[in-house]
Amino acid sequence: MLAFSLIGAPASADELRPAVIELTQRSAGKWILEWKLPVAANAGGMAGAYADPVIPDGCAFTADPVRRAAPLALLGSARLRCDSDLSDGRFGLGGLTGRADAIARFVPLDRPVQTFRLTADAPAARIAAEPDRWAVAADYFVIGTEHILLGWDHLLFVIALALLVRRGWAVVKAATAFTVAHSITLTAATLGYTGLPGRPVEALIALSIVFLAVELVRAVGQPERLTWTRRAPWLVAFVFGLLHGFGFAGALAEIGLPQTEIASALIAFNLGVEAGQIAVIAVLLALVAGLTRFAPKAENPAIRIAAYGIGITGSFWLIERVVS
């Protein structure tokens, strides 16, 4: 089951690159609408090559929208004239279907920035007179959960860590250490206290996956050999968690944070990541426990196959991120 789940996984990492649309006020009555459709989002359910922007009632295009292709993304922009207050107006992206989602940002000159999550069921956001703190927290909780579940580089690290440790309390300690570490660097990077270039961080994250895969193969083949990773998995998880936090921060930077609700959005995003992580670990340990009980002879071969699958995937990402 583990082998088939890995084989069926996407061949790309960090799938959380949602479409983004931003409505920004330039002066009285003049607005700029800009949108970005990552290739992954477009392939995941956009109707046609370009999604159609939805603009509020009372607004009109002053010229035809401009669309162009960029590396791994489709970009668009348009100038609008809005002759009324946009409170209770709606804007977003038409054509979202299936699991595709998007982030919408409303940036007026005289009011706080508002951020919304768009889905196929709700492809347009309703602009509020004042931002709703709980709605922001709920949206960012879902975004955080999606990031750990769809961001396969982070997810494979968690899977490899759980397979390496396997013991209930030890897994909890290692997972908690990973969460605390990535929360530290995520928060620090998001608030501008520190930061690392995105490309080297992504390569090192891939290297961390390869490292754990090698440790997992050794643990199956040489169970008596206690490496530092097997002696103190929480410490290794903490060190690599600091690195993964910069990766989370990069994804969150693309989405953006509402200026008036930075703290609640950041906390909700972290809680969402943790919830997704706990769900994955719980399912994985249940699968391993079932394998141990009903097919004990298949346990080590299955974990070895999973380790090689994780290692090959991590190696591919490492090479791709170093040479590209």
Rank of each mutant, 00 (worst) to 15 (best):
A3E: 15
F4W: 12
S5Q: 12
G8W: 03
P10D: 14
A11I: 12
S12Q: 13
S12D: 09
E15K: 05
L16V: 11
P18N: 04
A19I: 13
V20D: 08
I21L: 02
E22I: 10
S27L: 04
S27Q: 12
K30N: 05
W31Q: 12
E34G: 05
K36L: 14
K36W: 04
A40W: 00
G45L: 11
A47V: 15
V54D: 10
D57V: 14
G58Q: 07
A63W: 03
R68M: 08
A69R: 03
A73M: 06
L75D: 05
L75H: 05
L75W: 01
L75C: 07
S77K: 11
S77W: 00
R79Y: 13
L80F: 04
R81C: 10
D83G: 11
S84R: 14
S84F: 08
R90C: 05
G94E: 15
A102L: 08
R105K: 12
V107N: 11
P108L: 03
R111G: 13
R111L: 13
V113G: 06
V113P: 09
Q114R: 01
T115I: 09
F116M: 03
T119W: 01
A122H: 06
P123C: 13
A124N: 01
I127A: 00
I127S: 01
I127R: 00
D132R: 01
R133D: 13
W134F: 07
A135M: 08
G144R: 02
L149E: 05
G151C: 10
D153S: 12
L155Y: 01
L156S: 10
F157R: 06
F157E: 09
V158W: 01
L161F: 02
V165K: 00
W169Q: 08
V172N: 02
K173Y: 06
A174E: 05
T179S: 14
T179G: 13
A181G: 09
I184F: 09
I184A: 09
T185C: 09
L186Q: 07
T187V: 12
T190P: 04
L196S: 11
R199F: 09
R199N: 12
V201F: 11
A203D: 03
L204F: 15
F211C: 00
L216K: 07
L216C: 15
V220A: 10
Q222N: 12
E224W: 01
L226R: 14
V236G: 01
V236H: 00
A237E: 02
V239A: 15
F240K: 06
G241R: 02
G241W: 03
G245S: 06
G247D: 09
A251Q: 03
E254I: 05
I255N: 01
I255Q: 01
P258S: 04
Q259R: 08
T260R: 08
I262F: 08
S264V: 15
I267N: 00
I267H: 00
A268E: 03
F269N: 06
L271A: 01
A279W: 03
A282L: 14
V283D: 02
L285P: 00
L287N: 09
A289P: 01
A295C: 06
A295N: 07
A298T: 08
A298G: 09
A298Y: 08
N300R: 14
N300E: 14
I305A: 15
A307H: 08
Y308R: 00
S315W: 05
L318F: 13
E320P: 04
V323K: 05
